[in-house]
Design a protein around this nucleic acid. Structure first.
Lengths: 226, 226
DNA sequence: TGAACTCTGTGACATTCGTCACAACAGGTT
DNA sequence: AACCTGTTGTGACGAATGTCACAGAGTTCA
């Protein structure tokens, strides 16, 4: 798959013509990362924009005592790095490759040039940030009001929407993240995730085997947790 | 103060010339709201962009059982309503006037025209959304990792930065929001806020009289809670 | 001045959930 | 197989904090 093909799948670039895409693609540099490799450190200045062309990364924040919060898990055609390019602040989050991952990168100045030259990109990016803000607000609500079972349920919905595949009416997440990661997304402990998953299985809402999780009735499931 | 004067104070318009500002100002319609009045309902379609020219509003989400989460308190020169204009989704939050408030409003189509015509606005808006996203991420972290005292401390920092005034080295927040509102911002209960404020006062970190709260040493205070 | 509200302070209690401890299990390597 | 490492399951316990109940202050309005 060519660079341009990858770009076409990215929401903020969909409105552009092939020739414009090609111009941008020319400026992008491919990079590869191994599983577990740090892609961006919290402290460093943000100077690069990244588009994921393969694999997955997790976006985290770390507290002083080393506990981590997972803000998002991003996969193919997602992008990141735009935040500190936009407001000039340092990074607010760490990015780690969750599995072997490939990226296309764009330098700060090329990225800002794009925004100036193609207002459509700026508007599409606004849209994307609005969506993310919305999700953040939802998560703040759920962390504030819900108990751990609810929060874990919502987290599973998020994961299913991001990573799941639909097969004869029910959604399957293959290769579910570790319980520790789910806990760090849901703002709870690993043990509570373990117990809650068992609970959900007892209630016949989900089925697990190995690293796969199947949600029997996704719509009612989502209904129940939001 | 004229419309244009108000607009000049709004971050996303600062880069514009007076004549451009005047053109935009012409399209804006002033509105007034009483204390407690609903400005936007969660369910309604978003069709308007608002700039606050006086007073203050709170941005909230409500759960089914009526508990509320306060996502932000906005004051003069802040704006809202852009989210659902951008991504076309319905409102994600309610907006209520916290005190008598005045606004300038812009219709959906005029707002989008502005973005197309003045790329600088789009870029400044991107910056603003990036800042908000950053704050949301911080709050998600704090809700996930911190205990109630920390969260209340952080909430007080937020309030002080938004509403506080500096007087001979220490910051005073006049007219502190009710404990119930602080609780809804910090994701805790009203009673815990009451006890924690007393605790902070016992530790000689803050002083209260009536509705005013003074933070003796703002820098160390902020340090301690983030 | 009272009366009616709204907000705040505080004790008692119940519950959720994080933490610790350890066992069971899986996958990979020798 | 035996071993190691990383992951998951589960019981026991205690601390943090939400909830309930009510008293005391402070405000508003007649």
């Amino acid at each position: 798959m060519s660079k341009v093909d990858h770009l076409r799948n990215v929401p903020i670039f969909t409105d552009l013509s092939d020739s414009d895409l090609a111009k941008i693609a020319d400026k992008m540099i491919p990079r590869e990362y191994e599983k577990g490799q740090m892609i961006l450190l919290e402290e460093s200045q943000g100077e690069t924009f990244f588009i994921i062309t393969g694999g997955a990364v997790k976006v985290t924040r770390l507290s002083d005592d080393g506990r981590e919060v997972i803000l998002a898990i991003l996969g193919e055609s997602d992008f990141f790095g735009e935040m500190s390019l936009l407001d000039g602040e340092g990074r607010s989050a760490n990015i780690v490759a969750n599995e072997p991952a490939r990226m296309l990168t764009l330098s700060r100045s090329d990225f800002l040039d794009c925004l100036e030259s193609y207002p459509k990109i700026a508007i599409a990016l606004l849209e994307e940030l609005a969506i993310r803000l919305r999700k953040s607000d939802q998560q703040i609500e759920s962390l504030s009001l819900s108990d751990s079972e609810q929060r874990i349920g919502i987290t599973i919905v998020r994961l299913a929407e991001e990573l799941g595949t639909i097969k004869q009416g029910h959604v399957t997440v293959q290769n579910l993240p570790f319980q520790q990661d789910i806990a760090n997304m849901a703002g709870t402990s690993r043990e509570t995730v373990s117990r809650t998953l068992k609970l959900l299985e007892d209630k016949a809402l989900v089925k697990r085997d190995n690293r796969d999780l199947t949600i029997y009735n996704f719509d009612t499931f989502r209904q129940a947790f939001s």
